[in-house]
Nucleic acid binder design. Sequence first.
DNA 1: CGTGAAATAAAAGAGCC
DNA 2: GGCTCTTTTATTTCACG
Lengths: 160, 160
Amino acid sequence: MPTPVLDALDRRILAALQRDARLSNVDLAAEVGLSPSPCLRRVRLLEEAGVITAYRAILDRDAVGLGLTVFVGIKVDRHDDAHATAFREAAAALPEVISCHLVSGESDFLLQIVLKDLAAYERMLLDTLLKLPHVKDIRSNFVLNTVKSAAPLPLDQLAR
Amino acid sequence: MPTPVLDALDRRILAALQRDARLSNVDLAAEVGLSPSPCLRRVRLLEEAGVITAYRAILDRDAVGLGLTVFVGIKVDRHDDAHATAFREAAAALPEVISCHLVSGESDFLLQIVLKDLAAYERMLLDTLLKLPHVKDIRSNFVLNTVKSAAPLPLDQLAR
DNA sequence: CGTGAAATAAAAGAGCC
DNA sequence: GGCTCTTTTATTTCACG
């Protein structure tokens, strides 16, 4: 068994910060059963190691006027590096695209796009998405209802 | 023009907190061009109004040992409320399911599932997903490469 | 890793523009 | 609404066991 990168305490710290990133170090330490000093040391290490990549406020999309979410499947011309890279960079640069993955299956890329309404999506589709490099086919899947979103990662499932 | 729910200052506050949820109120105020008191008042109001729903630490999935992300399209038997609701609740209760949406198009539901590896997904598919209520068809799309993930919402796009 | 003390910073509130 | 100033409270930090 190689030295585990994350021990049980690290996982508890991460779980707590996923639930509430604004926990003070004192409260966090109490929650994970540690005193403040070593707790803060661990958090700093997790940040420096790139395990914690950011602390974000999660917003209600409807409340901020971004009521439309669309999952967009996109096929590109070919799969070679030059094509894929050009597409990737162009897609990632769009602020409306909040996630973009290369996936197996029907589509090559799966994008999650957030917009004000259908009219905004129509403009985006015509003016931007269809003009991305090497796009061959686009399939739009509109979100009708969000059952669960931006949930914390299931660190409990890692217990060995 | 109805009273806008969010004015320009609110949007600047939200943008800053999406980028860094751990900003102190003093720093946040300086960044948005406000003094601390009104800035904190606005943040509290945004929290109470449900605009800010959570503050989360964002983790590197590979670094925590959750190297496999799968987008799973699921069709259910029928679309009536009883069926859809039963499915929804069962799916949302699974910790590995970090997002679940009712969508238009090919599938009825689109789930984002995070796991350790393919073996874990095989178990999940056989033991859990296929046994969810009213499931008719499952299509698994494996993430080969993550280009962009958990990006902040594009509040700039709301400027009228 | 824990403890405790010292230094620092943050939040909260009152009164005013 | 927002600003400033003051008070109160909490948090970070560090040296040592």
